[in-house]
């Protein structure tokens, strides 16, 4: 494996997305190799969430395509409403959102096994065993029967990550999953994501947390105004950015630069 040039896991080409007259993504080209961890940074409204939502198959698009492991699963059609989304391929991508998305009427265990049982027809006992193992690994072994309303924000996000992992995704998307958390709860969620990184889970992460970005990224994208302005290793993009706009953003948002 190591010696072959790795085929891209994801490739995005010419991706365009508008909301009405507002062009949000203006032709994004991007390839991601297996095992890469892309951190996406950039100013508010720059299109980071939109990019992840498109890749998750949650949005129609105006142009371009997205390919996963050689399969083009999102393709623009004649009109945005005609966007072609391959649902089978989409299932191999997991996503965790900024706001809490656990289903409030289901307990932690039920949240985890809902999709495996209903979508894949997995046996309930087997799914529950996998879920319990995963939750224990994430320090949630005591919370199997708790309801979302009984969990802290950090616990909710860890459960949401576990829920996405239940479907054995080939790619994980994280959109500011710690932004809604109290500062003291951010660490426990980031630790879980770092744990996944150690297992070479390919992921794309939108974050405003400089420490986290540096520790998790194998590559950093600076995305602003609907284009990728800079793309490179974390030391470069976060440390000594080439582009003026990246430098301004990093100075303004992180107040530090090495």
């Amino acid at each position: 494996m190591r010696d072959q040039p790795a085929a891209p896991l994801v490739s995005v080409s010419g991706l365009q997305k508008s909301y009405g007259a507002l062009k949000v993504l203006k032709g994004i080209d991007l390839t991601m190799k297996p095992g890469e961890r892309l951190v996406v940074i950039g100013p508010s409204g720059g299109g980071k969430s939109t990019l992840l939502r498109v890749m998750m198959g949650l949005e129609t698009i105006n142009g371009g395509s997205v390919t996963l492991a050689g399969k083009p699963y999102i393709r623009a059609g004649a009109t945005p409403a005609r966007t072609v989304i391959d649902i089978a391929v989409r299932r191999s991508i997991g996503m965790v959102f900024q706001h809490y998305t656990l289903f409030p009427h289901l307990n932690v265990m039920q949240n985890l096994i809902l999709a495996p049982c209903k979508v894949r027809g997995e046996n309930k006992v087997k799914a529950s065993e996998r879920a319990a193992a995963l939750l224990t690994r994430f320090g949630l072994g005591e919370k199997l029967t708790a309801y979302p309303s009984q969990l802290s924000g950090g616990q909710k996000q860890r459960v949401a990550i576990a829920r996405a992992l239940m479907l054995d995704p080939r790619l994980m998307l994280f959109d500011e999953v710690t932004s809604a958390l109290d500062p003291e709860l951010v660490g426990e969620v980031e630790q879980v994501i770092l744990q996944l990184a150690k297992q070479d889970m390919p992921m794309m992460i939108v974050t405003h947390d400089m420490w986290f970005a540096k520790n998790i990224a194998s590559r950093v994208l600076f995305c602003a105004g609907g284009v990728i302005v800079e793309d490179g290793p974390p030391e470069q993009v976060l440390g000594s950015p080439k582009e003026e706009r990246t430098r301004d953003f990093i100075d303004r948002v992180f107040h530090i630069r090495q």
């Binding site: 939502r53 998750m56 198959g57 949650l58 649902i87 989409r90 299932r91 991508i93 997991g94 996503m95 959102f97 900024q98 706001h99 998305t101 289903f103 809902l114 999709a115 209903k118 979508v119 949401a160 829920r163 996405a164 479907l167």
Partner: peptide
């Protein structure tokens, strides 16, 4: 919330 339904899509339902 919209993201709750999006999570359902992301989970393949």
């Amino acid at each position: 919330p919209r993201e709750q339904l999006d999570a359902g899509i992301a989970l393949g339902l």
